[in-house]
Design a protein around this nucleic acid. Structure first.
Lengths: 110, 110
DNA sequence: TGTCGACTTGAAGAATTCTTCAATTCGACA
DNA sequence: TGTCGAATTGAAGAATTCTTCAAGTCGACA
């Protein structure tokens, strides 16, 4: 019983659907980073960051390697940047549209 | 109070994170479609489809227009295809070990 | 007007995901 | 060995999202 493709896609996007996970992926685009460094840049408790890292790890989009007493995370593939870029393009359009709508709404109520 | 960008991104991806919503977006890439036609292609109850369409509408990624007694949905000008392509590329990498899905990914049948 | 078909909405419970706390593992080092 | 710092895990409750059903709106048409 194979998982339908559209369900795999949905799971993939849901995996991306968390602020902390987004920030981790963006930080890792500059290269591998230790958990300690991620913690310094993201406002979140260690246990919570770990939980989100676990989600990313389970999906396979990042890898973790122990180096001495710290753990270093890295992107498992190179294409995440493209995805983020495409998302940003759409998001920019959507937000611009919303601002437009908001402006008109304000006019109407005045 | 502006919404942080990484949170807007997370919300955007979460909006995509549902099998029915993914299928709707893919179907709409071929052009506008009436709800009736979406219902014929997606196995889901009308009220459920409506709920998922409402999520897409609220996010602004689709628009709905009434035409006679039916309602027609369309992509709201955003280039969703690029996003899907980037996502498919990453998914292909992630699933490279699981040949079960790989074949269909390349065909992009769903 | 009254009814039918197409679609949406509200509400309630089920299911999933998030956050937090406490406990745990693993390596480093005295 | 004993302890410290770094990171993870398990568990419980909170919060969010999904699904379903019943009721509702809106246009078409007799």
């Amino acid at each position: 019983m194979p998982v339908p493709l559209y369900q795999a896609k949905a799971e993939f996007f849901r995996m991306l659907g968390h602020p902390v996970r987004i920030r981790v992926l963006e930080l890792l685009q500059d290269g591998p980073k230790a958990v300690r460094d991620l913690l310094a840049e993201i406002e979140v408790e260690p246990s919570n960051l770990s939980a989100q890292l676990a989600v990313l790890r389970r999906s396979g989009i990042v890898t973790a390697t122990r180096e001495g007493s710290t753990v270093v995370y890295a992107l498992a593939g190179a294409d995440v940047a493209d995805l983020m870029k495409a998302a940003r393009r759409i998001l920019t359009e959507l937000l611009a549209g919303q601002n437009e709508l908001l402006a008109r709404l304000r006019e109407d109520s005045a």
